[in-house]
Design a binder for these strands. Sequence first.
DNA 1: TACTCGATTAACT
DNA 2: GTTAATCGAGTAG
Length: 169
Amino acid sequence: MAHFSPEGLTVGKVVETEAYLGRHDPACHSARGPTARNAVMFGPAGFLYVYLIYGMYYCVNVTTDGAEVPAAVLLRALEPVAGVELMGQRRGTSHIRQLCRGPGRLARAMGIDRSLNGTSAVDGPVRFYPPLPGEARPDIVAAPRIGVREAVDWPLRFYIRDNPFVSRR
DNA sequence: TACTCGATTAACT
DNA sequence: GTTAATCGAGTAG
């Protein structure tokens, strides 16, 4: 993923995500119907759903499915690829492994806040790209989602095995 | 209009 | 290991 921001370009490889499945997933914000916050999930796939959590961090999601299935994928960790210096400025650390390790940290490092809620993940300032040509398919582990109280045993967290940038093992 | 608490993190002991 | 920070969406009254 990349963010073309006024401050500069930052790029990271997605190494950890969580799925939120929509109305029938009790941990999903859309489970109790549309609200002002989750409105983007009730639209088409491929748009950013950004919300404030714990009053101080942003979580970045990409909507999936169509308007009939209000689902999204949460980005939990990135491997920094470009713009590392800018990420460090935004995060106040130079330790590369800590820059994008966790949903709140990656949003901060990438300069993503609620002003980007509802923007396109294809055309917008924040964009997602397919794997590089010839890149080997990673070994992906499925595990329970972190920080949710509902549906604790649904294995909807996915991360690249042994990747040092994932938030937890 | 008021109250509760979260898809977290950093800074403590 | 524990807890404070910090705020607005969601819900109840």
